[in-house]
Simulated assay, not measured.
Amino acid sequence: MTTSFIERLLPDFYRCAEQPGNWQLVLDQVRDELQVGSVVVQKFRVDGNRLQQQWVLRDSHSMEHAESHDCLVNNEENPRLQLDESRLPLQDVAVIQGDQGFGRMRQAEFRALDERLALLGLARPIILGIRYSNDSSLSMLLHPRCDGSQTVDNRHGQFLQQLAPHLKQSVSLYEKLSQLQQTNDTLSQCLDRCNAGVAVLGASGEVRWLNGSAREVLQRSRHLSLANGRLRCADPDDANRLAELVAAAASGESAGERFVGAVGPGWDRPVQLLAVPVLAASGPCVALYLSDDALRSELSPEEVVQLYGLTPAEARLAIALCEGATVNEYAEGRGVAVGTVRIQLKSIFSKLGLNRQPELVRLIGSSITTRTRSFSS
């Protein structure tokens, strides 16, 4: 039974690496097949003379009573979490029953643990212990019910021994994929602060990845959308231009090449596109940057002060000039004399080593703050 069950279990077991939400269903299968009351997988790291739980995976019964379980069992009074002279060194793989591996000095603590487990309707577990790394370990615990209707025996031990290499491998895959997902989420958030959406396309135009800003652009646009994993244009001529743009970038021989275009008429919020080839190990693909008139940042006087060493009044003037105001318009709007504004402008030129207003507009307009979106955007 054990071998055939493991063979049936393994596809779902390894699938949990990329679908972590399935762990509970898989542990429920183990619980029901082995007729125990609870199945839990834990990862611990060594912290001084204790094992500290890093994470836990539970079957549905354990999940339902998770708060009580953590309060009564996963605490400093649990002798299994102590690392001292009473505990034998952990083997690479070991199946442990009762207080096996501990000296007599822990017996009273194990009796107290039994009493707390009984409050949860559970008895002492049989445990699979795996050395995961130099300072961490994995455990799978099979708890029978404490009413005597269930017991653990050699059948359970054989199951745990056979499952051990698969548990270690699946957890390793699960952690690596989780780390990659966390990295992906972090990079996506960073890219979302740029004043452009980013899409990664395959050589044939299929969309492999979009950041949040790209999705915003597509949701706003009447000219470009995402459908069935591909970018779709409302106008056939735009569709041809987009296809040519992507094809040109996909066939580009240098990652430094740039191909630009736009979707939609210039008077109706077009989506501007910049395509560059990406020479990935898996084959050529295209990084497509998308922007519309909504993806822009307001210049902040406080940030201009910090970047260029201007006074707040000078920063406000510099921003107004970058936004198209004239000296006279700015003076009138602020209710100050034109001469005062010209003195401020002369001070700005002196501090920044500039001579002409277009140079100021170009400098401030190309600052890092104009290339990124504020967190309130």
Rank of each mutant, 00 (worst) to 15 (best):
T2E: 02
T2G: 02
F5G: 05
R8M: 11
R8G: 14
L9R: 04
P11L: 07
D12E: 13
F13H: 11
Y14A: 01
Y14T: 02
R15D: 12
L34H: 02
L34T: 01
Q35G: 06
S38G: 12
V40I: 15
Q42R: 14
Q42N: 12
K43E: 14
R45K: 15
V46M: 08
Q52N: 14
Q54C: 15
Q54Y: 06
Q54S: 13
L57A: 05
H61T: 06
H69T: 02
E76C: 06
L81Q: 03
L83E: 04
P89T: 02
P89A: 11
Q97H: 13
D99T: 08
Q100W: 10
G103V: 05
R104F: 08
R106N: 04
F110M: 03
R116Y: 03
R116M: 03
R124G: 05
I127H: 06
Y132Q: 04
S137Y: 08
H143I: 00
R145P: 01
C146Y: 00
G148D: 05
S149L: 07
S149P: 01
T151K: 08
H156W: 00
G157C: 05
G157Y: 03
F159P: 01
Q161K: 09
P165V: 00
K168S: 07
Q169A: 14
Q169K: 10
Q169P: 01
V171T: 13
L173H: 11
Y174E: 07
Y174M: 10
S178H: 15
T183P: 03
T186E: 09
D192Y: 03
C194N: 11
A199L: 09
G202F: 01
A203D: 09
G205K: 06
G212D: 10
G212F: 05
R215G: 12
S221N: 14
R222N: 12
H223T: 09
A227F: 11
N228K: 13
D237G: 07
A243H: 10
A248Q: 12
A250W: 01
G252L: 09
G252I: 04
E253V: 12
S254A: 09
E257H: 07
F259D: 00
G261I: 03
G261T: 02
G264D: 06
R269E: 07
R269A: 13
L273R: 11
V276M: 15
P284A: 08
C285L: 15
L290G: 03
R296C: 13
E298Y: 11
L310V: 10
A313W: 14
L317F: 06
A318D: 08
A325F: 12
T326N: 09
N328P: 01
A331L: 02
R334P: 00
R334L: 04
G339F: 10
V341E: 01
V341W: 01
K346G: 15
S347N: 14
I348W: 07
G353S: 11
Q357S: 09
E359I: 05
V361E: 10
L363W: 07
I368F: 06
T370M: 07
T370N: 09
T370R: 15
R373L: 15
R373H: 10
F375N: 07
S376P: 00
